[in-house]
Structure formats: structure tokens, C-alpha cells
């Protein structure tokens, strides 16, 4: 059974049709890349899927459960977690506190207001596990805002992983990275695919072709083409519209 289906998603901003009846499917264990020139509507789509923007039409189903009417935080609880294109961590907190906060959301109620959180060993263990997974175990005490960009992006991914997602949305995880950091991120994503299916929005074509099982191309808010890497590489319209116009835009 298909893990994730987005069907006929529509979003209008005033007169602009930012998302024009987009349909997407992600299979279990798959890395599905979403590419498209700047302004194609990728970020809008991620916000619609994660629920941070209300959609004007369409349906979203994850693992047989209809998420369409759910708010963003409810979608996370049903296994749909995301990262942000602009790194979104708690800059004034330590790496450990960042992870603890992410872990806390998925282990019991956050309305408890009397016990000290520091007394909960299980949260700490799970936070360490996450740190280990993304390779941050050496800098737990560092203030997140002072870390190098590449490290902050790893932390961003770790925050999303705390939900134990079935589907992980990665919004341009390599944005603003040098080649070395990018390669590390590619390796990290490759490791993560055993934990969750991944919808990868990315500009870095090398990374996309290394990681993706399937690729969908978005242009002017529409899915232009969808298929495996060879199909997309050789798709004439994709070559013309996406690869050809990349510089022009």
C-alpha cells in the first residue's frame, strides 16, 4: 500500500494559483525528491502538506489516515514530520535542550506543570539516541545559535526525527552548504531512509540524483513530470523548463 498520498492540493494567494491541483505519492522506504525552479511553489507545497498553511482544496492521506482536516501538530503525531528551509532551531538553548524539547513532544503530556523535567531519565536517553543518530553527541552543551551552519542543519533534522515520523519532509536540507557539509548531509539522509520514507525538496541536483528513488518536478505550481531518475533526466519538458531556465530565473 502506498504510504503517503497528496491529492489535488490547491492553494491560492489572492489571484495567484501557487499550488495548482498537485498530486503526489510516496511509497514505503522511498526517497521521493521534489525539484523545480525558484518560485515553482515547492515551499508552499511543503507548508500545505505539513499543515502550516491551510489548503484551499485537496486531500492528504498518510498510512491510511486522512490528515486533511488536522492541524500541523496533529499531523506530526500521525507521523508526518518536517525540517525547515531556513534553519529553525532554538538558538538560545543548548543542543541537548533542543533535543529534549523535541523528544518531550512525543513522550507524554506537555501540560504537566509540577514535576521537574530534568528528573525524567527517559527523555534524556531518547535525546542522546537522536544526537547519536545525526552525529551531534560531541556538542550537547553547545548553544545552538553559535554552531556552524552545517551542524545547525543536522540539529534541525534531529528535531524532526524525534517524532519517529513515517514520512519525513526535508525542505532544502543542503541550502547554503559547502560541498563538505552537503556530502555529510547526503550520507545522513541515506542513513535515515531505513527509519522513514522521505520527501526531499532540494536544489542540489547531485544530491537529488544520488538519493532519490523517484523525482517529481514542480513548475508554476503544477507537477510537470513524475518518475524514476532516468525518466526525469531524459524528460524533454523537464530539460526545457527546469534545467534550461534555471539560470534565466
Amino acid at each position: 500500500m502506498t504510504l503517503f498520498v497528496a491529492q489535488d492540493l490547491v492553494k491560492r494567494f489572492g489571484g495567484l494559483l501557487a499550488t495548482d491541483h498537485v498530486s503526489l505519492a510516496v511509497e514505503h522506504g522511498e526517497v521521493h525528491a521534489l525539484i523545480g525552479p525558484n518560485g515553482a511553489g515547492k515551499s508552499t507545497l511543503v507548508n500545505l502538506i505539513s499543515g502550516l498553511l491551510p489548503a484551499d482544496g485537496g486531500r492528504i492521506v498518510l498510512d491510511g489516515i486522512d490528515l486533511t482536516a488536522m492541524s500541523a501538530h496533529e499531523r506530526v503525531r500521525h507521523g508526518l514530520s518536517r525540517c525547515f528551509q531556513i534553519t529553525s532551531v532554538f538558538r538560545g538553548d543548548s543542543v541537548l535542550d533542543n533535543l529534549l524539547l523535541a523528544v518531550q513532544a512525543h513522550a507524554g503530556s506537555s501540560f504537566r506543570c509540577f514535576g521537574r523535567r530534568s528528573g525524567e531519565a527517559a527523555l534524556g536517553e531518547r535525546a542522546l539516541e537522536l544526537a547519536h543518530k545525526v552525529g551531534l553527541e560531541g556538542m550537547l552543551d553547545r548553544e545552538a545559535g553559535t554552531l556552524p551552519h552545517g551542524v545547525q542543519r543536522k540539529l534541525d533534522v534531529a528535531l524532526a526525527l524525534a517524532a519517529r515520523p513515517k514520512l519525513l519532509l526535508l525542505d532544502e536540507p543542503m541550502a547554503g552548504m559547502g560541498p563538505e557539509d552537503s556530502q555529510q548531509m547526503v550520507e545522513l539522509i541515506a542513513r535515515l531512509r531505513s527509519d522513514a520514507a522521505i520527501l526531499l525538496i532540494e536544489h542540489d541536483m547531485d544530491a537529488v540524483f544520488q538519493l532519490a528513488d523517484r523525482i517529481s518536478v514542480l513548475d508554476y505550481g503544477k507537477v510537470l513530470a513524475s518518475g524514476d531518475t532516468t525518466y526525469i533526466r531524459e524528460h524533454p519538458e523537464v530539460q526545457a523548463v527546469y534545467l534550461g531556465t534555471e539560470e534565466a530565473r
Binding site: H73, V76, S88, F90, L101, A105, A160
Partner: peptide, 18 residues
């Protein structure tokens, strides 16, 4: 802790499932 997280970054908190 949850409340301070909301103060510092509300969107991220929502996206982490709060």
C-alpha cells in the same frame, strides 16, 4: 519548557507536534 519553546519559536513548536 514547552511554553518557553513557544516564546522562542512558535512555528517550530507546532511542527514538532506541540
Amino acid at each position: 519548557h514547552a511554553l518557553m519553546g513557544i516564546r522562542d519559536n512558535e512555528t517550530r513548536m507546532e511542527a514538532m507536534g506541540y
